[in-house]
Design a protein around this nucleic acid. Structure first.
Length: 592
RNA sequence: GGCCCGGUAGCUCAGUGGAUGAGAGCACUAGUCUUCGGAACUAGGUGUCGGGGGUUCGAAUCCCUCCCGGGUCGCCA
């Protein structure tokens, strides 16, 4: 008998994750096979069987049998005969099926352990200690100053935040850094355009829109007038050299942009620890270039440019222009060096679009060639491009650009109309909060449900889908759990003594087994930089709950003790779903 | 041309060495339902896993090669 929901959680649980059921199961099997002394430990590799196999973990005996010189089915049968699960392990049954040795979980013991774990860990369920003592820097979002955030920034922001959440949950100290694009020649264009047309008096996103328009007009004109191009480069240099007027306008642009970006971040649940921005590294650039020259990684060519070539067969690139201006690469190099000194990370993760894959490979090679980061993992989480429904890339020039704020507003408005239709009785404030959670959740999920490296299509119908693999379906499943729990509270009969071993219905067992998988999903998501692994887990959880909901009545369970056990399972499902969604940055309303 | 990423059901995608089912969702068809919230559940698939070779006891998964789509290749970021 276990108590669920009535005790206080020990303060240590969130900091020292407990052993998870499937980890113990795996360890028990490995130990049991090893104990037969028939199979060398290094040949014990377990696999998860396909869904049609009635087992939870399997040992394929092929390799071991070959090494031992026996037929695989014979070895499997031999081992099955030798392994007798005792009453205190999670192993329920051991069966040899041809060359496979199949292990099944003991449903009652699993139920007890999983529900206990989730109740104890609460919103920390699945947390790992793997990353304890390690620091990871995540570079994400990176809006451009003097521009609105558009769909081009949304992927880095959303995927980056999910990776931050996931790494925190695996015990890492995570430093998020918003590498804001506030420097470089493009900014020279901004300043030159303002000089030419005057400073807009608009505010908020409207001001940013005007700055974008000025930028576009200037760029177009500069194509036919080399004078204007030179003027922009001149402003770029003035800015780099600390010119007061250039700096003042620059600061105005930065403030304007960041306050607009913050509104989007707040809605998306995004919190980034730092926003040093490219400009921050200006004082380090001369030193970086000098080091590259001193260490013979780069050379100065006849035109005065600093060139890096023949680096690991990568294409040649520059660290300094022939007019002495610096480049993206120069600042990125300084950024790595700064992060190494400041945070001493074991890894730096760049959440940046796939088109910059080559740039980052060059950066990583350069960093190492200069003697930095030899024991630090440098990773690029590359995400694909967003296209419109006709397959065209989104761009301002094409006129099909979608801005983040407008995208979120639109999604929320559509969600609001569904809420009005489905839940007219709710108070207005709650309706709006639900619409915000559902609309924004849909946008976020659209970016996280699949492998980031795939290109994605901006498709309203799919993004705001309320069924299938969608954010709304997950939120709805959670709300249903909450509804049952709410009604149970109103009935006053949720009993505190719970016997999880009563949960033996196939739908209950399946749901419990699935809940047990979150810790593994979290580990895999971290290893692969793949939030979609968590999304998949959430979706499968919601589906298993849907089956349970249909087949096992909670409030009208046959006996009070079964009702209590099912309430505990429902509470655990709600808790775990909330946890999974939180890792993705999606809110889970209790009603919708 | 070199390099990178994709190519799995009509569409959008999982699966990247293991089991005579290659899975989900959407769409389509037919059901469940006096609803613990129907934004639900159930049933229905003749798929050259882009083509062809190879490695392996075993390949959608690893290797080679070719085809198709996208990206990228010194003074933008």
């Amino acid at each position: 008998m276990i108590r669920i929901g009535t005790h206080r959680r020990p303060a240590t649980w969130s900091r020292y994750p407990m052993e998870y059921a499937l980890d113990r199961f795996t360890a028990e099997i490995t130990a049991a096979i090893a104990a037969t002394k028939r199979v060398p430990p290094e040949l014990i590799e377990l696999v998860t069987p396909k869904a049609n196999i009635p087992a939870d973990l399997a040992f394929p005996t092929f390799k071991a049998a070959k090494a031992l010189g026996v037929a695989p089915p014979q070895l499997a049968a031999e081992l099955a005969a030798q392994i007798q699960p005792t009453a205190d392990v999670l192993i329920g049954a051991v069966v040899a099926t041809g060359p496979f040795l199949n292990f099944s979980l003991h449903p009652e013991r699993l139920a007890h352990m999983v529900l206990t774990t989730i109740a104890l860990q609460g919103d920390q369920y699945g947390a790992q200690a793997d990353g304890a003592g390690k620091t990871v820097v995540v570079d994400y979002s990176a809006p451009n100053i003097a521009k609105r955030m558009h769909v081009g920034h949304i992927r880095s922001t959303i995927i980056g935040q999910a990776i931050v959440n996931i790494y925190r949950a695996t015990g890492h100290t995570v430093i998020g850094d918003n590498h804001v694009g506030d420097w470089g020649k493009q900014f020279g264009v901004v300043l030159a355009a303002i000089e030419r047309e005057g400073q807009t008096r608009a505010v908020g996103e409207a001001a940013l829109a005007e700055l974008e328009a000025q930028y576009a007009r200037y760029s177009t004109a500069a194509k036919e007038d080399p004078e204007l191009d030179a003027r922009a480069r001149h402003w770029s240099l003035r800015l780099e050299q600390g010119d007061r007027e250039a700096r003042a306008i620059w600061q105005w642009c930065v403030n304007l942009t960041m306050s607009a970006a913050q509104r989007n971040y707040d809605r998306l649940g995004v919190q980034i620890d730092h926003a040093y921005g490219e400009s921050f590294y200006e004082p380090m650039l001369a030193e970086m270039i000098q080091q590259a020259l001193d260490r013979a990684v780069a050379f100065r060519d006849d035109g005065g440019a600093v060139v890096v070539e023949n680096l690991q067969n990568l294409p040649t690139f520059l660290l300094q222009r022939s007019d002495s201006g610096t480049l993206y690469m120069t600042r990125d190099l300084a950024t790595v060096v700064f992060r190494l000194r400041e945070f001493a990370p074991s890894a730096i993760i760049y959440v940046v679009g796939e088109p910059q894959a080559l740039h980052l490979r060059q950066l990583f090679a350069l960093t190492r060639a200069m003697g930095y980061a030899n024991d630090v993992a440098l990773s690029h989480v590359a995400f694909g491009t967003i296209f419109d429904t006709t397959g065209q890339p989104l761009s301002t020039r094409r006129g099909n650009m979608v801005y983040l704020e407008a995208l979120l507003d639109d999604a929320v408005a559509r969600a609001r109309s569904v809420v009005e239709q489905k839940s007219p009785e709710l108070p207005d404030g709650e309706k709006q909060a639900i619409a915000e959670a559902v609309g924004v959740g849909a946008v976020v999920y659209n970016d996280l449900y699949q492998d980031p490296k795939r290109n994605i299509t901006l498709d309203w119908e799919r993004m705001l889908a309320t069924e299938g693999n969608s954010a709304t379906y997950l939120q709805y499943s959670h709300a249903r759990c909450c509804s049952i729990l709410r009604r149970a509270r109103e009935d006053g009969g949720s009993g505190s003594h719970l016997d999880a071993t009563l949960l033996t219905h196939p739908a209950e067992v399946r749901l419990i087994k699935h809940l047990a998988r979150l810790p593994d999903a979290l580990r895999e998501a971290a290893e692969r930089y793949a939030p979609f692994v968590i999304a998949d887990w959430c979706y499968a959880t919601a589906r298993e709950f849907g089956v349970f909901f249909e087949q096992c009545s909670v409030l009208k369970a046959e006996t009070p003790t079964l009702r209590s056990a099912r309430l505990a399972l429902t509470a655990a499902t709600a808790q775990a779903l909330r946890r999974g969604l939180a890792l993705l940055g999606i809110r889970a309303p209790e009603r919708m």
